[in-house]
Nucleic acid binder design. Sequence first.
DNA 1: TGGATAGTGATACTAACTATCAGTACGTGA
DNA 2: TCACGTACTGATAGTTAGTATCACTATCCA
Lengths: 134, 134
Amino acid sequence: MAVLENRGYRVTAPRKAIAKLLEQKHEGFTAEALSEALPSVGRATVFRTIKLFVEAGVVCRVPKMDGAPVYSLAHVDQRHHHSVCVQCGAVGEFEAATIDRALRAIGAEIPGQIVDHHIELYVTCDYCPADGGK
Amino acid sequence: MAVLENRGYRVTAPRKAIAKLLEQKHEGFTAEALSEALPSVGRATVFRTIKLFVEAGVVCRVPKMDGAPVYSLAHVDQRHHHSVCVQCGAVGEFEAATIDRALRAIGAEIPGQIVDHHIELYVTCDYCPADGGK
DNA sequence: TGGATAGTGATACTAACTATCAGTACGTGA
DNA sequence: TCACGTACTGATAGTTAGTATCACTATCCA
């Protein structure tokens, strides 16, 4: 919430409601799910607010294996990557100096200048059976 | 084309037309662009055929920085990653043993089992001015 | 060549957004 | 504490990327 104030955005009822829900929900969620959970908030406002939070860096957009997006609260401030459970959809965060080093090394090998990168790991998390419950 | 035959798929006129266009177009393309370039082929068929090629491993789906998908012919057979020029959209491929090693190391650190991963580098390629043409 | 069936195009539908716009509410300045 | 500009909102319609359905057609094998 403070993030909004710092950036000169207004702190409004819909934004507070969405932020509150995000704090409770420590897992990946879709915009649609949020919208359903908050029938009093317009769909457009949900999308606008998520976008605002993503820009502010408090929420991350994480593509699932099929490309469908889920959103996840950012618990660490720094640059980090995501792991997504292919079964339950739970989103985890991790920082990895080794990957960052590897990327810098690759930057020297490929043509052009790296300006950004996306890394997602697809996992079967500890709470899901590794075989998909078969 | 041989890939289709090997998998028991039929070699049809629309598939040949799409494959031919892909071979000419060595850069990232959207499904929509392909569909426009081939007005004689139905939109649904374009999407179906791209999906088929992706499953066969001859075409890769690469998300741009904003998540919008572009497709790219796979020129190397092995597991590889992609770089996408944020200006012209050109898609490059690279293999990187260092990243794979880093990922294996991370697999031991994070909870769960890694089943797959996606890595995209966003670059300004050698043919684009680094400052965005300003 | 004939026939089973894979593949096709048209169309309608879905998911995930974005744009528009009139109306509301927030916060500042007086 | 009121007025007023503008940020924000909800409803609605539109867009983009893709999937589902279904009657029709083209492939390929016998």
